[in-house]
Design a protein around this nucleic acid. Structure first.
Length: 174
DNA sequence: ATATGGATTGCCT
DNA sequence: GGCAATCCATATT
């Protein structure tokens, strides 16, 4: 059987692009106030280090980007445009920069709560953006540096059944 | 100490 | 399609 397990250190400690691709279809789980919120990852984006101008780690480590050089399997959450939190997972071995931005989810558990968190009534457009899903799952900077391999408030479930999906991989746009 | 602009979203026309 | 909203990390003076 395809047993669902929490993605571990070894999963994240690989090339950023590979982790980005393998994250598709897995389940992001958020536990907060005794409630379970979850969604299936349907869009990701890879950010590496030097050589990737769009990456925060492009010009070496800064206080903010240092975590991208740190242990894989940690969350990198940062605040953007003065109003959105963006969730990444750190990849590559310690010392090498890399992170994958979670761009979109398909709603799973806790739908009613996620709608409330976003003050929306429709399923449509609930989790289809990096800033939207963090709002729906109440993911903020307090989770920056969170170890995703240890369960608890935030983790990612792997080994989820694939349902005949098409994975499209391409260069980043923009 | 100050200036700049961003891994976005939602509302406007 | 265009653009304002709005905080903060980073670079510059």
């Amino acid at each position: 059987m395809n047993k669902e397990t929490i993605l571990d250190h070894a999963f994240y400690r690989r090339s950023t692009v590979r982790v980005a691709r393998d994250l598709l279809g897995q389940i992001l789980v958020r536990k907060i106030n005794g409630e379970l919120l979850s969604g299936r990852i349907v869009e990701t984006e890879a950010y590496t280090g030097p050589g990737d101008p769009a990456s925060h780690a492009a010009r070496g480590a800064t206080p903010r980007s240092a975590i991208m050089f740190g242990r894989p399997g940690r969350a990198y959450v940062y605040f953007c445009y003065g109003m959105h939190h963006l969730l990444n997972v750190v990849t590559e071995r310690e010392g090498t920069a890399g992170a994958v931005l979670i761009r979109a989810l398909e709603p799973g558990e806790g739908l009613a709560r996620m709608l409330r968190n976003r003050e929306r009534n429709k399923l449509r457009g609930l989790l289809d953006g990096p800033g939207k899903l963090t709002q729906a799952l109440k993911i903020g900077r307090e989770l920056n540096g969170w170890d995703l391999t240890g369960g608890g408030e935030l983790y990612i479930l792997g080994g989820t059944p694939r349902i005949g999906e098409t994975v499209i991989a391409g260069p980043r746009i923009g």
